[in-house]
């Protein structure tokens, strides 16, 4: 492993993912440095979620390879413990309480002292009042908080977050931005997939735009909204031409 690789949290080399004959990702090559926060944008069906799921080792790329902190997660099972993944689904069991859910995931991940870690995370997210309630009975906002607690349980070095701001009120959004700020202050990395440019770029220093499985923009994010508009106008043109 080279020193450069050690500085990289994620390294994607020509990552391609096909579902049957449909390509969700086509030869994505990028690196994300340790401590870097990246906003991942693109229209619906662009391949954002697929890329995050590959980074989380939930699906295997059809071609290319993806290294997390210099290691292939498919060959190093323990590397999964370095990754926190939050999707728009809550990812918890609705018939178990918040504490039961968190204890299950903590024990499954073989965390040292799982009970203490669960208490820590519950305190961090100010969830003590709701810890004994079944997840299915919580409001959407508290379910989201419980989901975040699950994502932070293994103290991940890399956070992958799919649509963190969807369906949340201003207070919950501020809480999430605060959490991300803390996470960044600890020198950890994150990829945040979103449609909300302004909120995402409050915490991210880099923006990547994907469309039809390819990277269309990779930069500081100042002109990311322009890139998005360009893509959407090209898509609208294509769809008009197809209709005609």
């Amino acid at each position: 492993m080279t020193p450069q690789m050690l500085m990289e949290t994620i390294r994607a080399e020509k990552v391609t993912k096909a579902f049957g004959r449909t390509y969700a990702l086509k030869e994505i090559t990028l690196t994300i440095a340790t401590g870097e926060f990246v906003g991942l944008f693109g229209p619906n069906g662009a391949g954002k979620s697929t890329f995050l799921r590959i980074c989380a080792a939930l699906i295997r790329p059809t071609a290319g390879r993806l290294l997390v902190r210099g290691k292939d997660v498919w060959k190093n099972l323990t590397m999964r413990g370095e990754i926190g993944f939050l999707s728009h689904a809550i990812g918890l069991y609705p018939n178990l309480t918040v504490t039961e859910n968190l204890l299950y995931f903590a024990k499954l991940s073989a965390l040292k002292d799982p009970v203490r870690r669960v208490d820590e995370v519950i305190d961090k997210l100010d969830m003590a009042t709701y810890a004994g309630m079944e997840v299915g009975r919580l409001s959407r906002g508290w379910q989201q908080r419980a989901a975040i607690a699950r994502g932070l349980l293994n103290d991940p070095q890399i956070l992958l977050w799919d649509e963190p701001f969807t369906g949340l009120d201003e207070i919950a959004t501020r809480m999430i931005l605060g959490l991300l700020d803390d996470f960044r202050a600890q020198g950890r990395s994150a990829i945040i997939s979103s449609h909300d440019f302004s909120r995402t770029m409050e915490v991210c220093g880099r923006a990547i735009m994907i469309d039809r499985g390819r990277i269309e923009y990779d930069g500081a994010g100042v002109d990311v909204a322009d890139a998005y508009r360009r893509i959407m106008s090209v898509r609208a043109g294509t769809s008009t031409a197809e209709t005609a």
């Binding site: 080792a57 939930l58 099972l77 590397m79 990754i83 689904a89 990812g91 918890l92 499954l108």
Partner: peptide, 14 residues
Amino acid sequence: EYGSLDSTLLAPVD
């Protein structure tokens, strides 16, 4: 339905 299978798959478990 609730995405909990993904959460289980994220754990370092065979």
